[in-house]
Design a protein around this nucleic acid. Sequence first.
DNA 1: GATGAATGAGAATTCATTCAT
DNA 2: TATGAATGAATTCTCATTCAT
Lengths: 207, 207, 207, 207
Amino acid sequence: MKEDNNTNKKMSKSEENKLLKEGKLFEAAYDLFTSKGINNTAISEIVKKAGVAKGTFYLYFQDKYDIVDLIVVRKSNTILIEAMEEVIKSGNKGFVDSVIMFVDYIIEVLRHDKKLLKLIHKNLSWGLFDSAFRNIKQYDNARRIIYYFIDELEHEGITKDEAEKILFMIVELTSAIVYSSIILKEPDEIQNMKPLLYKTIRKIIQN
Amino acid sequence: MKEDNNTNKKMSKSEENKLLKEGKLFEAAYDLFTSKGINNTAISEIVKKAGVAKGTFYLYFQDKYDIVDLIVVRKSNTILIEAMEEVIKSGNKGFVDSVIMFVDYIIEVLRHDKKLLKLIHKNLSWGLFDSAFRNIKQYDNARRIIYYFIDELEHEGITKDEAEKILFMIVELTSAIVYSSIILKEPDEIQNMKPLLYKTIRKIIQN
Amino acid sequence: MKEDNNTNKKMSKSEENKLLKEGKLFEAAYDLFTSKGINNTAISEIVKKAGVAKGTFYLYFQDKYDIVDLIVVRKSNTILIEAMEEVIKSGNKGFVDSVIMFVDYIIEVLRHDKKLLKLIHKNLSWGLFDSAFRNIKQYDNARRIIYYFIDELEHEGITKDEAEKILFMIVELTSAIVYSSIILKEPDEIQNMKPLLYKTIRKIIQN
Amino acid sequence: MKEDNNTNKKMSKSEENKLLKEGKLFEAAYDLFTSKGINNTAISEIVKKAGVAKGTFYLYFQDKYDIVDLIVVRKSNTILIEAMEEVIKSGNKGFVDSVIMFVDYIIEVLRHDKKLLKLIHKNLSWGLFDSAFRNIKQYDNARRIIYYFIDELEHEGITKDEAEKILFMIVELTSAIVYSSIILKEPDEIQNMKPLLYKTIRKIIQN
DNA sequence: GATGAATGAGAATTCATTCAT
DNA sequence: TATGAATGAATTCTCATTCAT
C-alpha cells in the first residue's frame, strides 16, 4: 500500500529522478555556457556532459535559450539573497551604507566568478529579471529585497516612481562598471573604480 | 611607388570598383543586421542583397563579425562627430551644459533609430571603440572629442585619470538608460528618464 | 468473480473503460488525421487529445498505420451500409438504377466531408478493404452488399468472374473521379462529372 | 581566349559539371525511391549514393518532394512520348484503335517496371502533370499528344469540354486498373483485365 | 580581382517505442 | 491495465569557407 504517496516529505522515486536529471542538465549547461560561451555550446554537448539522452533535454527545456534564462535568473536570485543576508547580518548602519554594502557584496562575488559575470551580463535583461521575480513564487525573496530598497528611498522623501528609477540607475551603473572593469579592465581595475562608483551612488541617492 | 595614389580626383577603375563593392556589402549588411538581427543574417544573404559573389565578401572582410564591428564603429563615429558639431554650433555654454547637450543629441538620434540603437548596444564594447579610435586614422575626430572632454574635466581640477573614469561612467550610464528606456520602456520612457539622468550627470561631474 | 460478464447489458468496469479509451483514441486520431494529415500527426498528439498516456496507445494499436487502417475501414463500412439502406428504402427500381443511386449516395457523402474523402482516397486500398470485409465479423453487412451486386450482375448473364471485375472497375472509376473532381476540381466540378460518370457506368454494366 | 564560350554546342566545364551532379542526384534518388520508398529514403542516403556532399542536394532541389515531383514528371513524359511514337510508327488504324494501342504500350512499360509504377501511382496527381506540361517547355511533346487526342475526339462529334472529360476518365480508369492489377493482383492479373478495360474504353469513346 | 558551385561538419529537433512503476 | 519519463537514432537543413575557373 502506497499510503505515503501524498505526503510532502517523501517524493516518489520518479519525481526524485526527474529533479536529478533536470539538475544534471542545469549543471552541465552552466559549466559549458560559462566556459565555452552559449553560442559555442551545442545541446548535444550538454546532454553528453549531463549523461542523459538528447530527447531528455527537450523534456525539461524548450531550447537552449530557455535554459540560459533559467540559469541567469536562478543565479542572480541566489546572489541577491546572499547579499541581503550579508547586509542584515552586519546590523543597521543607515540606508546608504547598506546599499553600498549590498552592491559591494555582489561585486565581490562577481569579481571571483568572472564566468558567471559574463553570462549574467550578456543575458540578464531587466525584463527577464522582472518577469521572473514578479511571477515565480520561488523568487519571492529577491522581490522583497527590491521592494525594501524602494520603501527605504520613499522614507528619504522620494516618490515611489523616482525611487524605482534611482534603483534602476544604480543597478545599471554598477552592472556596466562591474562588467567593464572586471572583464575588460577598462577603464581601470574594479578596485580602482569602486571609490568613484560608491561616491556616485551616494550622490544619486542623497538629494 | 604608387604615384597616382596622391591625386584626390582620380582613382583607377579597379579602385573605384573596389570601394563600390565594399560599400554595397556594407549597406546590405547594415540593412540586414538591423532588420533581422546579426545571428539571423547569413553571409549568403548579404552578398545576394549586395549583388556580388559569395567569394567577394571574403575579399573585403574576414567574417560576419568583422563587418559588424566596422558598422558599429563607423556609425558611432558619425554620431559622435555630429553631436560635437551640434555642441560647437550652439556656442559656448559652460562645460556641464555642453556635456548634457552632447548626450542629449546622441539620445535623440538613437531614439529615432531604434534598430541602430539595438545594433550598437549589443555590439559596441568599450574595447572595440577604444582600439578603433586609437589606431585608425579615419577616427581622428572622434578621438579628439574624447580628449576634449578629458581636458575640460582636468580644468575643473580633476586628475586625468579620474577624468577618464568619469567620462566612462557617464557613457555607460547613458548607454544603459538609453537602451533600456527606448527599447524596453523600462523603467520608464526615455523622456521621463532624461531629467534624472541629466541631474545625475551634473552630480557626477560637479564635485 | 466478474459475474456480470455474460450479460449483454452490463459490462465490467474495466471493459467499459477499455472501450472508452479505445474510442477516445479513435476519435482523436480521426480528427487529427483529417485536419493535419497522417504524416504530420504524432502519436504523442493523439494521446494528448485523447487524454490518455502514451503507453496506452500501444495497448490498443500496433502503430499509427494500424489505427489509420481501422479508421478507413470503419468509416467506409458505415458509408456503404448507409448507401445500401438508402437504396433499399427507395424501393425496387431495377439493378442499374440501384447501382447509380448507390454510387450517388456515396458521392454526396464524400462531397460534404472532404477531409474524410482525402483520408479514404489516400489510404483505402482494395486489399485492405477486401481483407477486412472477408475476415472481420463486424463487416458482415458490407460484404453482403458486395455479394448482392455480384449476384445481380450474374442474373444479367455475366459470369461471376466478369461480374467482380465490372464491380471493381465501377468502384475504381468512381473513386478516381470523386477524388479528382471534389478535391482538385479537375477536370471539372463533381456535379458536371456525374452525367458522364453515370452514363459510363450504365455502359459498363449493360452489355 | 575563351571564344567559344557563347556557342550552344560547347558548355563550360562548370556547366557540364552542374548537369553531371544534378543527374547523379536524380539517378540516386530514383533508385532509392523505387527500391525503398520515398518515406524510407533519407537525403543523406541520396547524396551518399550520388557521391556528392549533403549541401549539394539543396543546391539543386528544395527538398525531397521537389525531386520526387521532378522524377515523376520526367518519367511520365518519357513514357507518353514513347507510346505516341509507337502509335505513329504503326501507321493509321483509326482513332479508337490508336488510343487502345497507346494505352497498351503504357501498360506494358509499367508491367515491366513495377517500381516506377508504384512511384508514379502514388505521386502523379493530375495537377502536377498539368502544371508541368503547361508551363515547362521541355514537356512540349507530351502536351501535344494530349491535344491530339482531344482534337480527334472532337472530330467524332464530341464537344471539347466533353472530350477532355472522356480523356480524363480513360486515364484514371487505366491508371487504377494498372496499379491494382499489376501491384496487388486484384481483382485479377493485368492480362486478364485488359479485355474488359479495352472494351470499356471503346464504349466510353464511341457514342 | 571576381565568381559561385561545392563542401560537409554540425546544429536543432522529433518521435516511435520501451519499461519500470 | 495504465502510466509517462526516458531514450537515442534519425532526419532535415544551414552556412561559413574554399578554390578552380
